[in-house]
């Protein structure tokens, strides 16, 4: 599946865009920011840049103007693979009805400490 979106975390262009003509503009990059050591990089948004180096620089200017991060990832939006949105139901169906995967399913131990 092709990627190409942005602040929509699912890395894909809107379905009805149609065939996009060859764009003169700069490619789109998705930006991930690690806000502090010990935390993962989290998707912050997207930006346009001519190449990877400029994408990192632009990401610093655009998404970390107030000490929001200690590390950045930029990824070409077109490289993001997304699950098929039309198959939402079936694709995410399997955990349903499997409550026993959650600790809250087990109630008999209520009142027992440190469990």
């Amino acid at each position: 599946m092709t990627g190409g979106s942005t602040t929509g975390d699912d890395g894909a262009t809107a379905p009805s865009t149609g065939v996009s003509e060859k764009r003169q503009g700069w490619p789109l990059w998705e930006v991930f920011v690690r806000s502090s050591r010990g935390l993962s990089h989290v998707h912050a948004g997207s930006l346009h840049a001519p190449d990877a180096d400029m994408a990192v620089r632009n990401a610093r200017d655009l998404y970390t103007r107030r000490n929001e991060g200690v590390s950045l990832w930029v990824v070409p939006s077109s490289s993001i693979i997304t699950s098929d949105p039309d198959a939402k139901g079936q694709f995410f169906e399997s955990p349903q009805g499997k409550d026993y995967r959650h600790a809250t399913y087990y109630t008999k131990s209520e009142g027992v400490k440190h469990l």
Partner: peptide
């Protein structure tokens, strides 16, 4: 920056920046 965040959001609807 605000302009760029918003262009990004608008682009997801299918119109290039």
């Amino acid at each position: 920056g605000h302009g760029l965040y918003l262009y990004s959001a608008a682009e997801t609807l299918g119109t290039p920046r």
